[in-house]
């Protein structure tokens, strides 16, 4: 696999903060890989996502380097799609669903509005929105959380970017909808051969489909490696703690089983 981006000594400090949110990070992103960035609150995982996407807020201080194999930084919307945690704040509340999905296609694929609308309708069908023709006219608040996230995915992928960053894209959804959205992302990313950067606090969710994981804590990279290897033989104590903290249906319960 060829390297898509070499991150060297990258530090990010937000305005008004003394401690860096991301501290001397070294990480390579390979073209076509599915990389999961895993960490708890304050680990720097979202800061990394925003730095890579060029979406850091004004006033954030950036030091170090991101060397892209293409020469320049990817253009958000065209080369890189971004799906946020909360589609009710990432989608524009006063634009119809059709307009927001068509917008990216029109601007970046240089389509006419008519062509862009036809493309948007196809995208909404592709992301499995029920009644896509009706949904074109709907506003974000008229949709459920899961449907809004499908729209956000359609908008992120409208211009056929080569890179998709999903930043806690399923964390605000209930478990059943989360599973549906994860399998949709899996399908779309696979189909288009995209590079996926999947930011999550949920190590189990990442274990299901990432090629490689990078574990973050307090703004630093703790360890990285192939998913199976890191999860079966973690080198660092913090990774072991994260794995031990995970609960699923096979984890022994904390209570005695019999009903009192």
């Amino acid at each position: 696999m060829s390297t898509l981006c070499q991150i060297r000594n990258l530090s990010v400090t937000y305005r008004g903060q003394t401690l860096p949110a991301l501290d001397h990070l070294n990480l390579d992103i390979a073209a076509g890989e599915w990389l999961a960035i895993i960490g708890e609150s304050g680990s720097g995982k979202s800061t990394l996502a925003r730095a890579v996407a060029g979406l850091l807020p004004p006033g954030a201080k950036l030091a170090g380097e991101m060397r892209w194999s293409s020469g320049g930084s990817p253009l958000p919307g065209r080369d890189l799609g971004f799906v946020f945690q909360d589609p009710s704040s990432s989608l524009n509340p006063v634009l119809s669903v059709g307009e927001q999905v068509a917008e990216g296609a029109r601007r970046h694929l240089r389509l006419s509005w008519t062509e862009a609308y036809a493309h948007a309708l196809k995208m909404l069908e592709r992301v499995g929105l029920p009644q896509p023709d009706k949904a074109m006219e709907a506003f974000p608040h008229q949709l459920s959380g899961g449907q809004r996230q499908r729209v956000a995915i359609a908008a992120a992928l409208a211009a056929k970017p080569g890179i998709l960053i999903a930043d806690e894209a399923t964390s605000a959804l209930d478990m059943v909808v989360q599973a549906e959205i994860v399998s949709l992302l899996d399908e779309l990313v696979r189909e288009a051969g995209m590079t996926l950067i999947f930011i999550t606090h949920d190590i189990a969710l990442a274990s299901g489909f990432a090629d490689r994981v990078a574990i973050f804590k307090d703004g630093r990279l703790v360890e990285t490696g192939p998913t199976g290897l890191v999860l079966s033989s973690p080198r660092e104590a913090y990774t072991r703690t994260l794995i031990a903290s995970h609960r699923d249906l096979a984890t022994p319960p904390l209570i005695r089983e019999a009903t009192p």
Partner: peptide, 9 residues
């Protein structure tokens, strides 16, 4: 829907 931690290398 509950994600399972897969650790097989």
């Amino acid at each position: 829907a509950v994600p399972r931690l897969l650790t097989e290398p």
